[in-house]
Write a protein that binds this DNA or RNA. Structure first.
Length: 488
RNA sequence: GCGGGCGUAGCUCAGUGGUAGAGCGUCACGUUGCCAACGUGAAUGUCGUGAGUUCAAGUCUCAUCGCCCGCUCCA
């Protein structure tokens, strides 16, 4: 019977061998945590993203799309909390090599080190009487080192008047920043959501497991705006919808689960959060997060109202984002610039937000892992990827059985007819059995073979990947046959 | 960042200081008429990178980069 994937290494090897995923900068010895999608990988990943977009935007009345820039006004990251949260300083105990945040260290009297807004102040703090929480050694710490989550760069070619900007650590804030733009231009009403896919960047302390945790990655995020009080039911709605999406695209339900966040695990702004986890074959075969579905309440929009109020101060501080304090919230915050006016009920409020946030690369990896299978066929090992047809990089391969008697010409004609409609692959090299197996390893659901009979009755063999069954199909019916089977 | 393992052809790996190898894959030609067939031939390597020891380094030493496993970290 079919074997599933035991070691991630086997998949990494297949990905490289068949051109799904390569190490970034491979010829230079690689760049840690960065990966490139090859000819098959780029098709697969795009199919994953297209399936998501179709599901959350195209097929819904209450969703619209967005594609905002990666570089944004730095105050956005001040308002979101990313600038301050990740200016933390880390020290390492020289004795046991454990890393601890400076503001988590305790002294002899048990008093906590005060948290400093400015890293320069915290860096001068005396750590000689502080205790390592891991091994209880006193005062044996390295120089505090700043832990910066966000990638920084400079905008403006002239060094004198360029300013520090950040590569976004999440796509979500771009959606909040465009909330009122979308509202003002689409006639859409709450409840509604905005979807966005795109690259994000985080300087993770540790990267992990192939493309699972990388410093550059792609997100598929939704911010769904709803009236306070209806947030719980929308959270349930998205939980259900998002889980269904993975299952509909072929992931075995037994490899998926919800993991609710414990109260002490919740971010300060979140009312509730649940992860959709997949059983990856890493290390201990641990369940790992594919997607988080959080109830972010009205936190973000209210924070951005504070951010808008901070602009003048920011200019006064010569556009130094770290030095600029975030302005206090206006007493009438619920009537602020990011509030929503409900015409029917004549009331104004700041909407609550449900955020289903998925990793495109993680999802792609999960689809790869779940599709991977090894079988024994007539004493030979058969490797295949059982992709859902809509995710398969190549939908159909077209072969002449042998390279003569007009078969290549006929096969090419079929290939040319199909390629405008779906990704196709033509192959006339070596034995047909070998060509079938090559397509199995790429996950191609169907192969069409032109043979001797084709010249007589204009029919071809259509061979299905998983069962290896063959159907005789008339050439006039190929498109219909495939469209039905591929569910296109 | 720490500890352990690893890095040799596209992939999997052998090579224990003395001429760079195998299997699979790839390509060509022939044969072949539906599941990795056979025959013949061919291409492919700064042995991850850089330094050192040595008459001689894939092999020993050091540094560095990358991958895996376990810690640590993880709004």
């Amino acid at each position: 019977m079919a074997e599933t994937l035991k070691k991630l290494d086997d998949l990494v090897s297949l990905c490289k061998r068949r051109g799904f995923i390569f190490q970034s900068s491979d010829i230079y010895g690689g760049l840690a945590s960065c990966y490139d999608y090859g000819p098959l990988g780029v098709e697969l990943k795009r199919n994953v993203k297209n399936a998501w977009w179709k599901s959350v935007v195209q097929m819904r009345d209450d969703m619209v799309g967005l594609d905002c820039s990666i570089l944004m006004h730095p105050l956005i990251w001040k308002a979101s909390g990313h600038v301050d949260k990740f200016a933390d300083l880390i020290v390492e105990c020289k004795k046991c090599n454990t890393r601890t945040r400076v503001d988590h260290l305790e002294g002899h009297e048990g008093e906590e080190t005060t948290h400093h807004e400015k890293p320069e102040v915290a860096a001068r703090e005396d750590l000689s009487d502080k205790i390592c929480p891991a091994c209880e050694t006193v005062g044996q710490f390295t120089e505090p080192m700043p832990f910066k989550l966000m990638f920084e760069t400079r905008m403006g070619a002239n060094a004198d008047d360029s300013m520090k900007v950040y590569l976004r650590p999440e796509t979500a804030q771009g959606i909040f920043a465009n909330f009122s733009n979308v509202l003002n231009t689409t006639r859409i009403k709450i409840p509604f959501g905005i979807a966005q896919m795109g690259k994000s960047f985080r300087n993770e302390v540790t990267t992990k497991a192939f493309i699972f945790r990388t410093r550059e990655f792609e997100q598929m995020e939704i911010e769904f705006f709803c009236k306070p009080g209806t947030d719980d039911q929308w959270w349930e709605h998205w939980k259900e919808q998002r889980m269904k999406w993975y299952i509909d695209l072929g992931i075995q339900p037994g490899n998926l689960r919800f993991r609710p966040h414990a109260d002490d695990e919740l971010a300060h702004y979140a009312k509730a959060c649940v992860d959709i986890e997949y059983k990856f074959p890493f290390g201990q075969g641990d369940w790992q997060e594919l997607e988080g579905i959080a109830n972010r309440t009205d936190y973000d929009l209210r924070q951005h109202q504070r951010g808008i109020r901070s602009i003048t101060k920011w200019f006064e501080n010569k556009r130094d984002t770290e030095k600029t304090p975030l302005a206090d919230e206006h007493t009438d915050w619920h009537k602020g610039p990011l509030s929503y006016f409900d015409d029917e009920n004549r009331e104004r409020y700041i909407p609550y937000v449900i955020e289903p946030s998925a990793g495109a690369d993680r999802g792609t990896l999960a689809f790869l892992v779940d599709a991977y299978a090894e079988e024994e066929v007539r004493g030979e090992k058969r490797n295949l990827l059982r992709f859902h047809p809509s995710l398969a990089p190549v939908k159909v391969a077209v072969f002449p059985l042998v390279k003569k008697d007009g078969m290549p010409e006929k096969a090419r004609a079929i290939y040319n007819d199909l390629r405008g409609r779906m990704t196709c692959f033509y192959d006339e090299k070596s034995a047909v059995g070998r060509r079938y197996r090559r397509q199995d390893e790429a996950g191609t659901p169907f192969c069409i073979t032109v043979d001797g009979q084709t010249a007589e009755d204009n029919t071809v063999t259509v061979r299905e990947r998983d069962s290896m069954n063959q159907d005789r199909v008339h050439c006039d019916q190929i498109k219909n046959y495939l469209q039905e089977k591929l569910d296109m």
